[in-house]
Lab assay of single mutants.
Amino acid sequence: QTVVIGDTTYHLNNPEAAQQIAKELAKKYGLKVVISGNTIKLK
């Protein structure tokens, strides 16, 4: 699972954790979560 935040890319072996982290950050910073395949992007 790949999480992309701005110009930073994180690789996590746990998809659920990756999605949870993405949701928390999106909520905290008012970002939009875009999931395509096994890549999660925060914009």
Score class of each variant (00 low, 15 high):
13 N>M: 10
2 T>V: 11
9 T>D: 02
31 L>G: 02
42 L>S: 01
7 D>W: 15
15 P>V: 10
9 T>E: 05
39 T>N: 04
27 K>W: 07
7 D>Y: 15
24 E>M: 15
8 T>W: 15
33 V>D: 00
36 S>W: 09
25 L>T: 00
38 N>S: 07
3 V>R: 02
12 L>K: 02
22 A>T: 03
41 K>Y: 15
27 K>I: 09
43 K>S: 13
43 K>L: 15
39 T>C: 14
8 T>G: 04
26 A>V: 04
5 I>Y: 07
6 G>T: 03
29 Y>T: 02
31 L>Q: 02
18 A>T: 04
41 K>W: 15
31 L>V: 07
39 T>W: 05
34 V>N: 03
11 H>W: 13
41 K>E: 12
25 L>V: 03
20 Q>E: 09
25 L>M: 05
11 H>K: 07
15 P>C: 14
22 A>C: 05
18 A>C: 11
34 V>A: 04
38 N>I: 06
5 I>P: 03
26 A>R: 06
26 A>N: 03
18 A>P: 03
19 Q>V: 12
22 A>Y: 06
8 T>P: 02
21 I>W: 15
14 N>Y: 07
27 K>S: 08
32 K>N: 08
28 K>L: 10
3 V>A: 03
25 L>H: 00
13 N>T: 10
31 L>M: 09
21 I>H: 03
15 P>W: 15
34 V>T: 09
41 K>I: 15
38 N>C: 11
17 A>L: 13
43 K>H: 10
23 K>E: 11
37 G>Y: 05
41 K>A: 09
9 T>W: 09
22 A>I: 12
1 Q>E: 05
36 S>Y: 10
14 N>W: 11
16 E>W: 13
19 Q>I: 14
7 D>P: 08
21 I>Q: 02
21 I>A: 05
31 L>D: 01
27 K>F: 08
25 L>E: 00
42 L>A: 01
7 D>H: 14
5 I>N: 03
6 G>M: 07
20 Q>Y: 11
41 K>N: 08
26 A>Q: 05
29 Y>R: 04
28 K>P: 00
21 I>V: 08
2 T>I: 13
9 T>P: 04
25 L>P: 00
43 K>A: 10
31 L>E: 01
35 I>N: 03
15 P>Y: 12
1 Q>G: 10
2 T>S: 08
4 V>L: 07
14 N>T: 13
42 L>H: 01
31 L>F: 11
16 E>I: 10
39 T>K: 06
15 P>H: 09
39 T>A: 04
7 D>V: 12
1 Q>L: 15
17 A>V: 11
37 G>E: 04
13 N>Q: 11
25 L>I: 06
9 T>H: 06
38 N>W: 05
15 P>K: 11
36 S>T: 10
27 K>Q: 09
25 L>N: 00
2 T>Q: 07
7 D>A: 13
43 K>C: 15
40 I>F: 05
41 K>T: 15
5 I>D: 03
42 L>K: 00
37 G>H: 04
